[in-house]
Amino acid sequence: MLMWMVIDGVDMPEDGSAGDLAADLLVRVADGDQRAFSDLYDLLSSRVFGLILRVLVNRSQSEEVLQEVFLEVWQSAGRFAPNKGQGRTWVLTIAHRRAVDRVRASQSSTDRDVRVGIRDLGVSHDSVAEQVELSIEGGKVVAALATLPDPQREALVLSYYGGYSQSEIAVLIGAPLGTIKTRMRDGLSRLRSEMGVNA
């Protein structure tokens, strides 16, 4: 059954055309239309929150990032180019980048806390060895990911941190499925090489 919704008096199907509706709303938001912003939020906030929550897992942090995403959308809607992609994809890309930035910041904070805790508290190396080892491995993965080209890194992060299938990533990014498969294969190959792991 096809669901319909009414936005600004216009009936719109709740299917793939939401991307086109989002694009129209973003153009109006760029002109300072608060009603369009409210409609855009109603249209996309649950989907955006779901993406952020899949990356961050923590609900309260996800809610904070959701607010940051829509603030950025309000402030930068003028940069959206309707002829270059769907509005929904543009907003979801902002959300994904914000969520990944939060993960990186959180990991850096955890790593710093572990280092300071070992040094300042005189904690025995044996009692935190496993945590430190995991942090080091995580740091190596983040460093290795940073060496990848953006398209490969984005596909791998969406898959492994976001939990998206290759088909979902293709839709999210707006690229053919074959391209996503190639990016992931090449990215994994480079990661193995960067980390000194034999295939």
Rank of each mutant, 00 (worst) to 15 (best):
S46A: 10
D111L: 10
G32E: 02
F80I: 06
E14T: 07
G174L: 08
R190S: 13
S124G: 07
R115M: 14
K181Y: 09
N83D: 15
D8R: 14
S108Y: 09
S127E: 13
G138I: 01
E194T: 13
A22I: 01
H96Q: 09
L21T: 10
A146K: 09
V55M: 08
Y160D: 06
S127L: 10
L172I: 07
V157I: 12
G50S: 11
G117F: 09
D11M: 11
P82S: 04
G117V: 01
A155T: 08
L188M: 14
G78S: 08
D31K: 12
V27H: 01
D120M: 11
L188C: 08
I180Y: 05
P149N: 08
G178E: 14
Q61S: 13
A81Q: 15
D20T: 10
I7T: 08
V6K: 12
L148A: 01
D20Q: 11
Q107E: 14
S76I: 00
L21R: 10
L134W: 07
Q75K: 15
R115S: 11
I169G: 03
V100K: 04
S109F: 08
E72N: 09
G196V: 06
E130W: 04
L71C: 03
A30Y: 03
V57N: 06
R119V: 15
D186T: 14
R119N: 02
V55Q: 02
